[in-house]
Design a protein around this nucleic acid. Structure first.
Lengths: 133, 133
DNA sequence: CTAGGTGCAAATTTTTTGCACATGC
DNA sequence: GCATGTGCAAAAAATTTGCACCTAG
């Protein structure tokens, strides 16, 4: 039985896990979440499917945080906040960031490159970690 | 004999290599640059010293690009451009990016966090890689 | 049957670390 | 001599990959 998206059961489960969390998880985290539900799942499969999602444009990498690559299925560009202590990642509402759509052209002109994308990340302390200080 | 900064000869050489390039290099790149000049140098020493510079606030990490961490000794915050094909990193003049210094407070308020830092990265194709397409 | 998906473990790659030795003061 | 720095190689950690099997259509 496959989903409407024609994903295998496991691929669909991995995608849903990624899509239904706001933790911007690592492969390991997705794997731990799904292990109770899908005892046969293997970590390599999670890695492989996350790569598939990236290629299909269904997910993007937020980069390596504390040694692990983190993923996001919210494809609309928006800034992120990363806690330097617990490495939680939160979405920052769009609007805090680059406002002008002509900026890609300006930067491209200025640097002699073709800008296709950008990302904005704020760093600091999340509320839980602030309390502990 | 040590430098005015009281660095060991090798530490100073590693720092100068980092400070005098605009390639935003990886540890490996610094190591390869210095090997002819310092045949006894070991890669572990480069990694250790780059960590030291980060702790001292003399360098910062630009994150992991194509599997390797990249470093920058220009501490003034400024955006970067990363080529998705050859992974070259270029500085983007400050001014292309977040203009308002109160933004940290706004984001902090909005998200319930303490913002201490940010980074802006543009992605696309550098001029060499554009020519090859 | 065929193509795509998966488990498993080994391999790869980058970075870190332990420890003995070296160096500068 | 002492504290710091370093070479070397092993270890650690994350990710990728080869290959046999398995499952859906």
């Amino acid at each position: 039985m496959q989903s409407k998206r024609n994903f295998s059961v496991k691929r669909e489960a991995i995608f849903q896990t990624l899509a239904n969390t706001d933790t911007h998880p690592s492969a390991e985290w997705v794997y731990e979440q799904l292990k109770p539900e899908l005892p046969g799942l293997s970590l390599g499969t999670v890695y492989r499917n996350l790569s598939v999602f990236k290629e299909m444009g269904l997910a993007k990498s937020l980069g390596v945080v504390n040694g692990q690559e983190r993923f996001d299925a919210r494809m609309a560009p928006h800034p992120h906040f990363i806690c330097r202590k617990c490495f939680a990642i939160r979405d920052v509402p769009k609007g805090y960031g680059i406002p002008d759509s002509k900026l890609y052209d300006s930067v491209g002109m200025e640097c002699g490159v073709k800008v296709e994308n950008h990302c904005i990340t704020f760093y600091g302390l999340c509320s839980s970690c602030m309390d502990e200080e």
